[in-house]
Amino acid sequence: MWYEFLGRNNFLISLYRDMPELKNVRISEINMQDEGQIVAITFDMPVYTENPPKKWQDLGDNTVCVRVDLSAVKEISLAASSIDYKGDIEIYKDESELIVVRINGTVNALIKAEYGFVQSVTAYMKE
């Protein structure tokens, strides 16, 4: 599964009995830093967690938001056909052991990097 290719994924794994595939997810951010050497992608999980922390329950949160950081980026391409970014996200390793993030939808992206990890997992109330 996609999360296995990312470091620091323990908290995310603890939230789900069965990790969902990233199909038709809302993508809130694709951010390039350090001349494109670091790329951050922030997206909503397609379903809410079965095991939310008490704080999330108390706040009435109903959407899990994940930020994935990729560093030592070797290749990036990005195109968008809408301001409403949604798409399917695939994360895997290619034959040269680079982490590949491929997004297909109203935003299309291909990012290849040496490292990838879960930077943050948060929740919010989506109306």
Rank of each mutant, 00 (worst) to 15 (best):
D94C: 02
N31Q: 12
E4V: 08
I41T: 12
Q119C: 05
K126T: 00
C65S: 13
E127R: 12
K126I: 00
L59D: 11
N24Q: 03
M1S: 10
D18V: 15
D58K: 01
V47W: 09
V68P: 02
F43Y: 12
I41E: 07
E29V: 07
R8E: 02
Q119D: 06
D34R: 10
L6M: 03
M45N: 11
L59S: 13
S71N: 14
I103S: 03
P20E: 09
G105Y: 11
R102E: 10
I13M: 13
L70C: 04
N24K: 08
S28F: 08
K126R: 05
N51W: 03
E35R: 14
E97V: 02
V39L: 12
K126Q: 06
S77Q: 05
S120K: 08
Y92L: 03
E35F: 14
D88K: 14
L70I: 03
Y3H: 04
V66P: 08
R17D: 13
D44E: 11
E75W: 01
L98K: 04
L12A: 06
L98E: 02
A123N: 13
V73W: 01
K23Y: 01
W2T: 08
A40W: 07
E90D: 12
S96L: 04
G105A: 07
A109Q: 12
E95G: 14
E114Q: 13
V118M: 07
S28Y: 06
L59N: 14
V66H: 07
E35M: 05
A79T: 06
E35I: 01
T49G: 14
D69H: 14
I13C: 13
N10T: 11
M32S: 15
T49E: 11
L22D: 00
N24G: 01
E29S: 15
M45T: 03
L22K: 05
N31V: 11
P46L: 00
V64Q: 02
A80S: 03
W2H: 10
K55L: 13
R17V: 06
I38H: 10
V25E: 01
V107Y: 05
D34W: 06
I41R: 08
N104C: 11
F117Q: 02
